[in-house]
């Protein structure tokens, strides 16, 4: 009876497109009609018999829609994330493509075939506040192999995998990290059903995805190598180049940083050779003088040695440190 009433109301809504949407609220989702929905069919007949007319209704035929277990996972990181000494944050989306509320078990696997190294999984987190950025202390941490909170049908969740480079990785090597989501109710070949375990009180049936899906993100090792070369130029007090007492030796230390990454906290240190004396005020970086004192600039020099703090130097750069000593 209610059905007929509802349908009579519809034409009053006017445009056909408007009522199509209104008539099937359960099908607004791409995943299909919501699990637990009861489909009810009633036929009505009208007729005349002699002088009288009659109406008769059929019984109501009801079918409850069961839960379809389906999921899609996508790696959201477009290009491999360059990773050095700090960890990389990888993003994945897990979408419940089924028709009922479902939680998904999350497994992050760094051992993907073809990897040049396997990353270390540090943390798995849910983008709890939905800002697409990993916020430590805010975003809910998920242990590997545990389940997300229930995701509504057609709903999506962003997950982060925070990974570190292993010591074995060398510059430029690639590695993929796979995130797999499995329906907590169950996985299996499409069509496998779990009696009475569906959202909405029906059964749960494995959909085309097998109720399990995975996505890949990648990192690329971004490391730096440092080479140091030392050279000396000797000038004696007679205009020649003889190592006699009083001759001055200018030492040059060239630090060459290679690779795609960066060298951090890079220091160039050297001891003053025995039998020589450091010449005060001769310490230079890239040809510019540094004071000997430990102060605002990057260099310190004393009778025992020199120390220049180069800080962070990215690959492809060189830094030249020089200082003078006099032969005793």
């Amino acid at each position: 009876m209610n059905r007929n009433f509802a349908h009579r109301l519809r034409p009053a809504l006017g445009l056909a497109t408007a009522f199509t949407i209104a008539a099937f609220p359960g099908c607004a989702s791409a995943a299909g009609v919501t699990a637990g929905t009861v489909i009810q069919n009633i036929a009505t007949a009208t007729f005349t018999s002699g002088a009288s007319s009659g109406t008769v209704q059929s019984n109501t035929v009801s079918v409850k829609v069961d839960e379809l277990l389906d999921v899609a996972v996508a790696g959201l990181t477009v290009a491999p994330v360059p990773t050095g000494s700090t960890s990389a944050v990888l993003s994945y989306s897990v979408t419940n493509t089924g028709n009922g509320s479902e939680a998904f078990r999350i497994l992050v696997d760094p051992a993907v075939a073809g990897n040049q190294f396997d990353a270390t999984i540090q943390t798995i987190a849910i983008d709890t506040n939905g800002n697409s950025t990993y916020d430590p202390g805010v975003d809910q941490i998920l242990a590997n192999g545990t389940a997300t909170p229930a995701i509504a049908a057609d709903g999506s969740l962003r997950l982060f995998a925070i990974v570190n480079l292993p010591a074995s990785a060398t510059d430029g090597q690639n590695s993929q990290i796979r995130l797999t989501a499995e329906a907590v109710t169950g996985i299996g070949t499409p069509g496998t059903s779990f009696a009475g375990q569906g959202a909405g009180g029906g059964d749960a049936v494995v959909g085309a995805s097998g109720a399990s899906a995975s996505g890949l993100d990648a990192i690329v090792a971004s490391l730096a190598g440092v080479a140091l070369t030392k050279s000396a130029v000797l000038v004696d007090q007679f205009g020649g180049a003889q190592p006699v007492p009083g001759a001055v030796i200018t030492y040059s230390l060239v630090a060459t940083v290679s690779g795609t990454g960066q060298a951090e906290s890079l220091h160039v240190t050297d001891a003053i050779p025995a039998g020589t004396t450091y010449q005060a005020g001769t310490l230079k970086l890239q040809g510019a003088a540094l004071t000997d004192a430990s102060d605002g600039d990057q260099g310190v020099a004393s009778a025992s040695g020199i120390d220049v703090n180069l800080g962070t130097v990215t690959g492809g750069n060189t830094r030249t440190v020089s200082f003078d000593v006099k032969i005793n």
């Binding site: 489909i39 069919n41 007949a45 007729f47 018999s49």
Partner: peptide
């Protein structure tokens, strides 16, 4: 979906029209 009909009466029935709204969800 099927609807079986039968005239169980003794007289003929005329202008017999069966109407079936398509249920929500299908």
């Amino acid at each position: 979906f099927s609807t079986a009909y039968r005239n169980a009466g003794a007289a003929a029935v005329r202008n017999f029209v069966v109407t079936n709204p398509v249920p929500e969800g299908v």
